[in-house]
Structures are given as structure tokens and as C-alpha cells.
Design a protein around this nucleic acid. Sequence first.
DNA 1: AATGCACATGAGAACGATTTGCAAGAAGAA
DNA 2: TTCTTCTTGCAAATCGTTCTCATGTGCATT
Lengths: 141, 141
Amino acid sequence: MVDVDQYKIMEDALRDRGVRITRQRQAILSVLAAATDHPDANELLVRASAIDPSVSLSTVYRTLTVLEENGVVQRLSFEGVPAKFETTDAPHHDHIIDVETGDVIEFRSEKIEKLQAEIAAELGYEIVHHRLDLYAKRLEN
Amino acid sequence: MVDVDQYKIMEDALRDRGVRITRQRQAILSVLAAATDHPDANELLVRASAIDPSVSLSTVYRTLTVLEENGVVQRLSFEGVPAKFETTDAPHHDHIIDVETGDVIEFRSEKIEKLQAEIAAELGYEIVHHRLDLYAKRLEN
DNA sequence: AATGCACATGAGAACGATTTGCAAGAAGAA
DNA sequence: TTCTTCTTGCAAATCGTTCTCATGTGCATT
């Protein structure tokens, strides 16, 4: 478990950027640092409430916005479901969504990253960010 | 302009699948057939109302759902904006979203298509569908 | 440790896109 | 034309998310 380190890194990064560390933000940050899945705002509220019952849903959303603006979390907006969140400690990756179970698997392909940049450049664009979601089902095998 | 043909193809496809062609659906279909952009539900209501003022927003949404289920339109859910719709007459393609203007540019890359399938297969998955959106900005040049 | 002020919070109302319940209307097979 | 089933308009309901506003609280400064 590297939760403690991960938490510290995020809190320090935020402090450096002048973001106030409140009780509620500590609770939410530690939940995010400990998460190995991709929780949505409601799930984060449940988990953070266990640490600090005073956390409200509004604050979860507000905090997530702040964390996103400061680059410590990323918002994942999949189709038709509430946004999910993950810390940005992991390098960039894309997602495979299991259409049968809803599971989300992460992957990364340098080839695809490079191809995307090439295509954009050809069309006169420079990529700011992208989303590549593969909706798939398990192979029988 | 191939609107008429495009319209006929869609209506026939729907009839074949037992979908009732109502006045409202005719209006919405013809708007979709004529569209060269990616309108959202509200914009479709405005355009369809010009043809048949009895069309309501509920019907636009309900019709779009039916059309999507029957494969004649595709729903494009970009981040933070209402869903956009396009007819499925064009072959599959991905999108570049100009983050400054909101413009949507279509493109297709066989290489990327193939890579995606490969990656999914490696992880034991078979792609059902995917979305690749490049949020980009124009190159200065 | 106490102070001050800008910023954060909880509760709930507001929002915007989309969906739904219901009674009335119409498509299309017979 | 008739009958059955599906569709519609309208308004209300949903649902994720954001906002309002009165109250609390980090934390730089004493």
C-alpha cells in the first residue's frame, strides 16, 4: 500500500498551488489515494463520510472540481453514467469498458498515442486531450 | 443534394423493421437527412417544427431513441454538452472537437481501427463499439 | 496563541438534459 | 372502416451536477 505517500504527494502539490487543505478535502483526498477503482461522486461521499461524517455531496463535487483544476485527479465521463474519478499519479491511459459488467480496464498504447497526434497534425490540429473508450465484451475463449 | 434518397433509405429501413412512420417522425427524419452538421435534440426540434409544428421535444427524444435502436442515427455524447446526432449513412469515423470553437471534424484511420482491435484482443476483449474523441486546437502555422 | 479575511462548507433549491405517466390521437393490418 | 397497438403532447418526474447563501474555518499575520 502506498496510500500514505500518494496522499502526501497530492496534498503537497495542492498546498504549493495555494489550495487550502480542509478537513473535508483531507477525507476526500485520502479516499482517492486509497481507491484502486474508479468511484463516482456518490461513492466518494460514502467513503469520505466514513472518515469525516461532515462531508456533503456538494463539497465532494466542489472538491473534485478543484482537484481536477489542479491536476491531481481526472474526471472520466463515460456515456450514460455518472462521472468517475481517478488520481493522476498513474501515467495517461485509455479505457476498455466491459459492456456486460461495467468493469473498466486501463491500457496504454504508444502507437495509438502517436497515431492520434499524427492525424490531428495532418488536419491542422494540436491535441489538447483525448478520450479513447473501447466498449467491449469478453472473448469466449 | 441527396436528401431525398437519404430520407427514403432511412424510411424504408425503418418500415422494414416494423417502425411506424408518423408525421412527426417524417419531419425529424427529413431534418436529419438534410443536416450536414451535428445537431442536438433542441436544434432538431427547431428544424422539425418548421416542417411540422406539432412536433414536441419529447417526441424528438423518443424518435431519436427509436432511430438509434434501429441503426439509422448515431448519438454522439461529448463531454459537458447535450448529445449530438448524425445519420449512420456515412461509414464509421471518429471526431476531432475544436476546443476553442466547438466545431466537430470527422476523420477515419484504418490504422487506429486495427490497433484498437488488436489491443482489445490482447486483453481478452472484443470491441462492440468505441469512441475516439480528440479535443484539439488549431495549429498556429 | 489570537485576529482577520478570503475562501470553504452544509443544506437545500435550482438547473439542464433527458425520461416518463397519462389520456387522447393516429398508423396500418384486416 | 374498424380495431388494436403504438405514438403523441403536455406536464411532471428524474438524475447528475451546480449554485445560493448564511455560517464556519484555514492560515498568513500579528
